[in-house]
Each structure stands twice: as structure tokens, then as C-alpha cells.
Design a protein around this nucleic acid. Sequence first.
DNA 1: ACAGTGCGTGGAAACGTTTCCACGCGGCCG
DNA 2: CGGCCGCGTGGAAACGTTTCCACGCACTGT
Lengths: 353, 353
Amino acid sequence: MDAGDGLRMAAERPNSRATMKDVARVAGVGVGTVSRVVNGKSNVSEESVAAVNAAIERLGFRRNDGARMLRTGATASIGLLVEDVADPFFSLLNRSVEEEVLRRDSVLLTASSDKDPERARKMILTFCARRVDGLVITLPEGGDEEYLRAELDAGTSMVFVDRPPRVLDVDAVIVDNRGGARTGVAHLIGYGHRRIACFTDRPDLYTASERISGYRDALEEAGIPFDPELVYSSATTREPVDEPLGRMLASDDPPTAVFAGNNRTSINVISALRIHKTSLAIVGFDDFELADVVVPGITVVAQDPKAMGRIAMGMLYKRLDGNVSPSQTIRLPTRLIVRGSGELSRDAVLAAR
Amino acid sequence: MDAGDGLRMAAERPNSRATMKDVARVAGVGVGTVSRVVNGKSNVSEESVAAVNAAIERLGFRRNDGARMLRTGATASIGLLVEDVADPFFSLLNRSVEEEVLRRDSVLLTASSDKDPERARKMILTFCARRVDGLVITLPEGGDEEYLRAELDAGTSMVFVDRPPRVLDVDAVIVDNRGGARTGVAHLIGYGHRRIACFTDRPDLYTASERISGYRDALEEAGIPFDPELVYSSATTREPVDEPLGRMLASDDPPTAVFAGNNRTSINVISALRIHKTSLAIVGFDDFELADVVVPGITVVAQDPKAMGRIAMGMLYKRLDGNVSPSQTIRLPTRLIVRGSGELSRDAVLAAR
DNA sequence: ACAGTGCGTGGAAACGTTTCCACGCGGCCG
DNA sequence: CGGCCGCGTGGAAACGTTTCCACGCACTGT
């Protein structure tokens, strides 16, 4: 078998890539030697290395990682499931997970659940069928968690992000939603407000219900009675809120401030206020680009999606490296960013009426 | 070999998943039959189907797609490389590509080049080593395109997005940057403006240079002389622009309008105008959330990243299905969204001075 | 009765790697 | 001078699928 033979052989299968066998033939060595060269093993003679590299160059050989994984069992890939990769929060999370994955020379599979438990399930099982080394999951509400147990038992590591597991014994990294909301609302109370409206997502969402709890915590701490009339949970975050806000403003004892439970709702509230030509103090949960471009800048309780991704990947890789300590849930602190909208005092709001 | 035997066998390798062989043993059939059942082939007796399904259930078997692909050659996976998955534009593109990938029951590998040609190269080659069926690529400027040719020749289909190929013969879908910029600037001219500043990205970026060309086209059409003093290309999009804007405003013949070449620059311009306590007419390229929340709302030349992803995937799958027609570049139209900032007339701006 | 047909089936080969084992060969030490 | 070591090497087995081939069996039509 000489070099010409090998070349001809590769040419005979036009749309198929050269394999180690082809390379071996062209280089005049065995496949074992090719494998050793490709993987940079030391015990190969210089001539062999040169011959193999020349053949690789000539044939445009590229190792088939799929085959490699079948043999070695490690796929060097991580699956990420979030609600929506186009959401500002999750896209930052995505990016920071990617950064960690890259550091380990792995590859990242991504998918959006779109809040659909069935879609989430399908994607996760697909990832498992691909035998990813680990999973980073934001599990949508309302689905069954149980099917994950089988994958867990089969040895697939996973970390939950943004939401804690309900029954599964897995690591998680979440945001201190309750504490953050409490801080934000307390900030408003500090400026004299006692009638504070609360606009959030559907309350069956974990994050939304936690933030509502934090809102109530702050009220309670200040001895302010909770008024359900001041709480509005929209079905979707795209839904405008000018109608419910208008109702509150028209009441006997209208709010002088608003706590918005997520960034899209913050925007909806701003639009609604503009429609009603009023200004109230606002604190929003979750920072957003341009929060400092509107006037006044929007004071927010900021989360740190990048840290969430980084920490989640740290936990995951520890598991992959064999850590078997009991699972833990890490609660990330939030940060209040003061920009003006939250520092409008009760007196100033009332004076403008 | 009875069922108990198979179970014991699976249990003996605790952290390893059951294989078709295990299933076959437990079900008392051959691996061929298991494969047929798993793949829903028709010519299997009902008893066999039942037995196999029972065994699958019992062992928690899940087909190893990696092995399957090695055999079949199709990996049912697509690689996506963009500049940054956390960028609003690219994250929407990402999502729409994901949607198409999902429809074909494939899986999506994603990566951010971070504008680094070397990083891009590494990720693309990694994807190729994984033998993705196809690639969707936003290639960073300044790198060599040549290494892609080998992959192309080896049979990996690819589509370029957001930027056309320089030398390679591949499909692409891009935005009509030049025409869109022309339209936006013409819109300003329509409101009487003749001194229009232009803030963009680094001009060595394809999109930025195209938009500058469009800006010049509009001026030329209206017989307005081009003044390089009114053009500022920032090194990075995070860089504030209050200093260069200040210089322009202090000149003998200051601008009365601004064309901002991308959404982050639009924001920078808004901030800078606020610092200088002036208002000019503004038209920005690329829409952004909240463009309608600031006052006045920002008039923009909108792109459609979702369409870009959808169309790119359509082209890619056509290639995968065997289409060998000459490669083409599709240029997506832009859409002017009128919100107020672009309709501030020259007279109004001058009157406020 | 007998070839032909079709269906359900089991098993082996193949996909492209990695890994392990064994071999040949030179040099070193006893 | 003979055994031993170690190095570079080739080749076979294995990873978990799919696919193909061949077999046995029950029909069918002549």
C-alpha cells in the first residue's frame, strides 16, 4: 500500500471524509500510530509523526468526534435548557454558560422551553439521548419532574438554574427573589410610600410568587397593611397594564409607588403611567438595558445572570469530576441600583397631583 | 438467557446505561428486533413489540444517538456561530434558528465568536469534528475564510448570515444595510435636515461600512455635500459619544439630526444629547426594546432577525436535501418604524436653540 | 405434493475511533 | 553471551447502533 493508493481511495468516496485508516495507508503506518499522533501521545518516532501529519494535511483529515465519544464514553458536551434564549436574562445566562463550557473544550447544546413542560421534556430527553455530560436546566412550571430521575440515576449530572427543584435531589442556583423584592419595596417605603402597587407575572411562576412574598415581607416589616387591590398579576408579560393601573389610580386611596416584578412589566408600567399622564415612584425587579436612558432612570433590583451561569457550571463540573457531597441550592444576592425612579418621594408624588 | 439474567447484567454496571443488547436479553429477542421496535419499523410481531417495550421500560433504556449517528452518518445537528448569543439581534436570530432546527428534530450547537476570528475558527472546526449536518455562520471580520473551504469540500453545508462571504461560494442572507440607511437618512432629509451627523461602529465592519455608504447615498441624492466632520466611527459600541458629539455641536454649522448606525450607538447618542441638554432629530439603525418607551420614541430602521434565521435555515435544509443550484445571497429589506424622534423638523430643532 | 412467497426473526458486519496486547529490535547488565 | 527491558509499532477488540443477509416457517397456487 503506497501513498498513491491511499489518495485514490479517498477520492473514490467523494462526499465522505478521510478516516484514520486512509491516513494510515497514505502515511504507511498503522491506525494505532495515527491515533497516537492525532492525540499527541509521546511515544511515537519523529518520522512517523511527520508522515502522519503530512497525510492528514493532504487528505484534509479531521477526527470524527462522534466515533471517539462512542469509544471513550465522554461526549464533552453540555445541554442548556432555558425559557427563551432570546430573553435578555437567559441570553446572558446562556453566554456565561458558554464561556465555562469553552474553557473545558466542550460544546454547548441549547434549547428554549418556551415555558412548555412538554417541549422541555422532549429537549431534555433528546440531550440525554445525545449523552451530554451534564445539563443546565430551567424547568418550566407545571410539568412533572419525575422523568428526570431516570436520567439522574443513569448518571447524567444536572443543575437547576433560576428555579429550585421541587422533589429532585439536585444542585441549583437561584436568585434571592424574596429578599430582593423585600429590599426594593423597603426602599420605596423609605421614601415615605405606604400605598405601593405590585405588578407581577402569573403567580404560579416560582419567581413571581417569591417576589410577591418579598413585597409582603417589606410591608409587614413596616406595619403597612397588605391590600390585595394593589396587586396585579398579569397572564403574560406582554399584556399592557394601563387598565388595571387606571383602576388603582381611580380608587379612594391610590398608590404613590409601584413595584414591578420583572423587567418587561417595568416597561409596561412605564408605558401605562405615560398613558395616564402621572408619575409614581417605581422600583423594578431585574435590570434592563436603557433603564438609565429613560427619565428618570429606573431604579431596579438587579440580578446577575452571568454569575448564575458561572456558578452553575462550577457546580456541574465538580459533579462531573466526581464530587458526591449532598446537593445544595445556592441563593444569589441581588443588588439595588438607584437611578431616580425609586427615589421620588411620596410627598413629591402627591404634590404633583 | 432469561430476564433475570439481563437485569443482573445491567445492575452490574451501575453508572452505565442499558444497551440494546441488554434489552434484547431481557426481552428474549435479538438486537435486530429491538432496533426495529425502537425505530417503529412495521414488520415486528405484536408479542415482540410488547416484550421489547416492557424491557425498555424496565431497564430505562434510551437509544444512544451518538452510536446511531456513527452508523447512519447523519448527526441531526446544526451548528450556529454568531457574534454574541447575548446580543439582542443575535439572540433573536438564535431563537428563530432553533425553531427551524426543532421542526426537523435536530439539535442546535451554539457558540459566540466575540468578534475573534481565531475563536470563530476553533468553534467551527469543533462543530465540523462533531460532524454537524450544517452550519449557520456570522464570520467575524479580519479572519481568513479559506479554512472553511476544506470543510465545504468535505461536504458540510453552510449559510452565512448578516455578512456575505468574501471569496467562498456559499449561500448567505443579509440585511439591506445600505438601502436601509439610505431610507433612514432620507427620512431625516424629508424633515428639512441638511446637516446630519452619522455615528457608527468601526468602519472595517461590513455592516458599518454599508450603512455609511447608505448615508452618503441619501445625501448625494438630495444634493447635500458630504462632510467627514459629521461622521464618527467609534472603536467599540460601548464607548460614549458625548465628546465627539460635543465637538460637532460646537462647530460653525452644527448638525440638526443624527443617524445612529446601530442600536447601542443610538442609546449612546441619546445619553450624549442628554448630557449636552439639546435635542436633535434621531433615526437609528436596528430596533430595540424600549425604543418606544423613551420620549420621544426613537424612529428606527428595523431589521428582522427572526426572518433572517428562518430563511437561512430554509436555504440550508434545501442544500441538505440535495439542492445543488448556484449559491445565492438574499438581501432582506428593512422597515422604517416612525416613533417621533425622526420627525423632529429642522425648524423645530433650530427654534429650540 | 412441491416450489414459490412473504413475514418475522437472529446474527454478523460495519461505522471511526481508542485502547490494549503482543511483537520485533536494539542496548544494557549480569 | 543470554536474558531483560523499553520503545515504537501494528493490529484486533470494543463502544452501541443500523442494516443486510439468510433462515425457518406458514401459506398459497399450481
